[in-house]
Structure formats: C-alpha cells, structure tokens
Simulated scan of single mutants.
Amino acid sequence: MDINFELYKVFYYAAKFESFSEAAQKLFITQSAVSQSIKNLEEKLGGQLFFRKSRKVKLTWEGELLFKHVEQAYNFIKSAENKFYEMKNLDTGEIRIGVSDTICKYFLIPHLEKFNVEHPKIKIQVINRTSSQILELLKNGLIDFGIATLPVKDKNILVKEFITVEDIFVACHKYSALKDRKVTLRELTKYPLLMLEKNSTTRHNIDHFLEQKGVTFTPEIELEDIDLLVEFAKIGLGVACVLKQSAFNEIEKGQLFEVEMAEKLPPRKLGICTMKNVPLSRAAAAFIECLQRTGHSLQS
C-alpha cells in the first residue's frame, strides 16, 4: 500500500492539538483541507480516527493506536533531520582517512590537530597503509579519502594534487667520505644502501628513475618504515634513502648529513584521492578543503 505522508502529517497535528483549526494554523492550510485530509485517511484505512465535537476532537481507540506509531515515526524523522543539520554544520560526523605513517607524522598531524580543535565532535579515524593499500581501501569503501604517492592510474579514482616532497640520501660520520662533495648514483652503489621495500610506490618511482639513468641499486636492508631507515642510518648500517623531513632533526643535530647527489632524485608528488561519483560527507569535504587551502605551507 502506498503511503501518503501528507495525510499522516495532517493527522499528527490534528491529534496532537486535538483541534482541526489549530492543525490548520500550524500547517498553513484551511480547516476544510484538514477535515478532507482526515476523511481521506479514514477512508483509506477503513475506520474512524476521531470523535468530532464542537471545537475539539478526540481520538478513537483506533486513532490512539495509530497516533502512537505516527508520533514515534515523526520523532524519528525529526531526529534524523536534526542529525542532518548537525552534520551539515559540522557538529557531528566522521572522517576516515588513509595515509602512510610518514606522511601522517610529518605533514598531516598539524591539520588533524587544528580540525579537531575547530570541530571537536567530528570523529577522525586514520588508517595507516602504503599507497597501493590505501587505494584498495578507497575502492572498497573503507575510507572517505586517501593521500597517496602519484601517479594513480585507476580511472575510477579522482586525484587532486596535494603537495610535493623530496627524497634524499643520508648517512652518519662513518661514511664521511661522501660528505661535502657531489656524489654520483653509480658511486653510491658501492655503499650499503637502506631503502623502502620494493613493493612501495615510492620505491617503484625511485627504481624507475634509476633505470632511466642506467643504474641498479641492490639495498642491504629494505624496510616499510622510513623512521626506521633514519635510525638505522644513525647507527651506521648504511646510506639511507628517506623523506627529507624525516631526517631534518638528525641533520640539524649533526647525527646525519645529507649526501649531495650529482643526479638528484625527482620530487615526489602526493595526491588526495577520492572515488569518482561517490559524494563525500560534509566533514570529509571540509577537511579536504582545509588541506588544499594550506597545502603549500606543508612543504615549508
């Protein structure tokens, strides 16, 4: 049976105020329109809903039963409406973000902190994965958006460029022979190298660059975590290829130095990835707007 919600709306107001005239005033319609709506509903249901008196009306037993259900439905609708407005005004909601540990630590945390202060009722969930894993999470609907190393070749994923980052080689005093001079990629192959695992997008981009230069690196150690690469470099296990920001403090303290390369690694672009034709929640859209607005400052 098709439900005419307008009839139930009129019934709700008439029952609540026990008056057709008051219902008409609240709904901005005529009293005769209220009477006709109630008559139509009674005919539709096959029973009487009100006892008509002079100015007031009283619900029949069947009307009382119906009103309890309609009132509950009305309250649910009002609650849903309020939640909708809260989400629209960023008073509630949830954001699910996919991002690598390193990018989260060195670029995203200040923005997470600021957004949380401005919108404390928004729940933020951060899932740490590699770029390829982030894209899978996105396609499976497990995150709202992800930050991944470009390029992304999936046509179903919409990419907006976020920031450009730089990968560098760092070493401790054990490899001081590499300090204060230009070092070629081929010379670097003679040293123990510490790099990200081969399956990562970042490593794939580096290997592609090396291939174009006719150079092959065979790392001594491969890890998933850039911060661990920095730590291993500090204790002299080799020359590490890391995100520049991840080694900034160690370089400042003199624990590591940047190996100045004759052929620098190409800058790496990161993008904000969302699914095409899948609308974002207001909270997720607001966070992305914040990132895009201030993306340039993250690179300083």
Rank of each mutant, 00 (worst) to 15 (best):
I206D: 03
V242T: 05
F257I: 00
L135H: 04
Q31E: 15
Q36G: 09
K88C: 04
C241S: 08
K56P: 04
L66F: 03
A286C: 11
E71I: 06
L65R: 13
R96W: 08
L223C: 04
E64Y: 12
R268P: 07
G63E: 10
R282Y: 14
V117H: 08
L49F: 04
R181N: 15
E211V: 09
K264M: 02
Q133A: 14
Q125R: 15
N82M: 11
V230N: 01
I226R: 05
Q292Y: 02
L41W: 01
P219Q: 10
E118A: 12
I109G: 10
S297G: 01
L41I: 15
A15T: 02
M275E: 03
A247R: 13
R55G: 07
Q125Y: 13
R186H: 08
N89A: 12
A285F: 08
N40C: 12
Y191R: 03
H119K: 07
V152D: 12
I221R: 04
H111E: 00
Q133H: 10
F84M: 05
I226V: 15
F209S: 06
S79R: 15
K213S: 02
D101S: 08
S19N: 09
Y13T: 00
E258T: 04
T202N: 04
Q292L: 15
A240D: 05
A262V: 09
N140R: 02
V117P: 05
F84P: 09
T60M: 05
F28Y: 11
F169I: 10
E81K: 14
G271P: 06
I95F: 10
S281D: 08
D2V: 06
D180V: 02
Q212E: 11
R181H: 15
L178Q: 08
K9G: 13
D227G: 01
H119R: 04
Q212M: 13
I134M: 12
E42A: 04
V57P: 12
L298Y: 04
L137C: 10
L291Y: 03
F17I: 02
N89W: 03
V242S: 01
Y106V: 13
N82S: 11
T216D: 07
N82G: 02
F28K: 06
T30D: 04
E220I: 00
I272H: 05
P267N: 00
K44N: 11
C104P: 00
T202A: 03
E231I: 06
G295P: 12
K56N: 14
K190N: 11
F107I: 07
L7C: 07
E71L: 10
Q292H: 08
G63A: 02
F162A: 09
L194E: 07
F232D: 02
N75E: 05
E224K: 13
L45H: 03
D144C: 03
Q245Y: 03
R129I: 00
F287S: 00
K68Y: 09
V159F: 12
R186T: 09
E211T: 09
F115S: 02
T184L: 11
M261T: 06
